[in-house]
Structure formats: structure tokens, C-alpha cells
């Protein structure tokens, strides 16, 4: 879970209980071409210098008006930067639909995002986020993209499965992680498989 910390961001231990930070809000059906446009899929994810570009272009395909709701015209990552000032992305239904590119959840992690919360996720994005141990995909009971505003200060309590919005003084329930919880807590499919003795 190593992150390149350019803004003194704290790296998160997958088993820690609390995630805190600033919200970045987008709408429904944000597909993987919006999360990381295909033209940027050429950079190496193994080379630390090239890899940073995934952070720079994360969510850069979202139309300007829908980027950083409700106001809009707010990029996840400022032009020329590699890391975001935001920590938690709030999406509408069907977040991550479209292609199977794992570069999508990876780009969000590289930008410094720690969690994505949406009422529903597209299947492959959700699986990639979990199996790759990039960011934790939490399902919310309501469509929080209609309630939470970009820049709101949030706190996720994994154990109690709640999201506290300190800016709006509201608490929202999150759904249990269910069958993927063990993989999330282990930090990914490889870590899980080693823990359970499936691979050495």
C-alpha cells in the first residue's frame, strides 16, 4: 500500500479502522474512460516515475461540469500536480462501469485517494479495487453524491460501517463488505492467498 507522499499524506494500513479526509464528488455512471482516459494507459505501473502520471490524470475524463459536484469545474488533481488534495471519492450509482482496466482504481490510489463510496459499483471495477488492494470500495445505503459536497470533511469508521460528515453534521450508513471483507482486510488477493496458505 505504498504511496508516493508529495503532500505529507499518511499512508493507510488496510486493517486500520478509521479513514479521514476531504470529499470529492462525482455523479452516476462514471466509467473507467472517465476515471483514466485510454490515451494515458501507456505508462508503466512498475516504474515509479512513469506511474505518477496515473495520479495526474485520475478522473481527468469526467466532463468539467460534473467534476467536483455540486459546484463542478473542480479537478481531482490540480493541473501539473501528481497527487490530489482530496482523500475520499463519493460517486453516484454504477461507479466504474465500462472497461476492465485495473489502471482505474490504481490511478485513484496513486492520486492519494483512500476510499470510494457509491451506492452501487460496476462489477469489474469493484473486484479490481479489492483484489489489487488499491482503494476500499464502500457501498452506501443512499446515493451520497446527492448529499455530500466536494470539500466536506469526512470520516469513515470501517468497524461500525458508518460515514460521518463533519461539515454537514450528518451520519450515513455503509453496507457491510460481505464476502470480500477478508480480501480487503488482507490488502488484496495475493496477501489473502498467502495468509490462507493457497500460495507461498
Amino acid at each position: 500500500m505504498a504511496q508516493t507522499a508529495t503532500k505529507d499524506k499518511e499512508t493507510t494500513d488496510p486493517s486500520s479502522t478509521i479513514i479521514t479526509g476531504k470529499a470529492f464528488v462525482v455523479g452516476r455512471n462514471v466509467d473507467t474512460d472517465q476515471i483514466i482516459p485510454a490515451e494515458h494507459l501507456v505508462y508503466s505501473l512498475d516504474d515509479p516515475e512513469e506511474k505518477k502520471f496515473y495520479g495526474r490524470y485520475s478522473l481527468s475524463g469526467v466532463p468539467d461540469k460534473q467534476s467536483g459536484l455540486p459546484q463542478g469545474n473542480i479537478p481531482l488533481v490540480e493541473e501539473g500536480e501528481f497527487e490530489s488534495e482530496f482523500d475520499i471519492v463519493i460517486g453516484g450509482p454504477n461507479f466504474g462501469c465500462g472497461s476492465s482496466r485495473e489502471h482505474a482504481p490504481a490511478s485513484m490510489q496513486i492520486a492519494g485517494i483512500q476510499a470510494i463510496i457509491a451506492p452501487t459499483f460496476a462489477r469489474i471495477f469493484y473486484r479490481n479495487a479489492v483484489d489489487g488492494g488499491f482503494i476500499i470500495p464502500f457501498e452506501s445505503e443512499e446515493d451520497l453524491s446527492q448529499i455530500i459536497e466536494t470539500y466536506d470533511e469526512l470520516e469513515i469508521n470501517k468497524e461500525d460501517q458508518v460515514l460521518i460528515n463533519h461539515t454537514q453534521n450528518k451520519t450515513h450508513n455503509l453496507r457491510p463488505l460481505g464476502s470480500v471483507e477478508d480480501i480487503v482486510m488482507a490488502g488484496g488477493i495475493f496477501e489473502y492467498a498467502r495468509k490462507t496458505g493457497m500460495i507461498e
Partner: peptide, 26 residues
Amino acid sequence: GTDSHTCTAGAFGQFATGIGNTDAAF
């Protein structure tokens, strides 16, 4: 397959679906 349109092969009665890089490496 590491591509979402891997589901195309289901036309042949195969179970076929798209996955990410980590799953492919696994």
C-alpha cells in the same frame, strides 16, 4: 481476459469474463 469485452466468447457457450491485471497475474 484482461478486457471487459471478453464476455464476447459467451456466444460459444463458454464462461468468459473480463478481469484486471492483479487477477490475471494470479
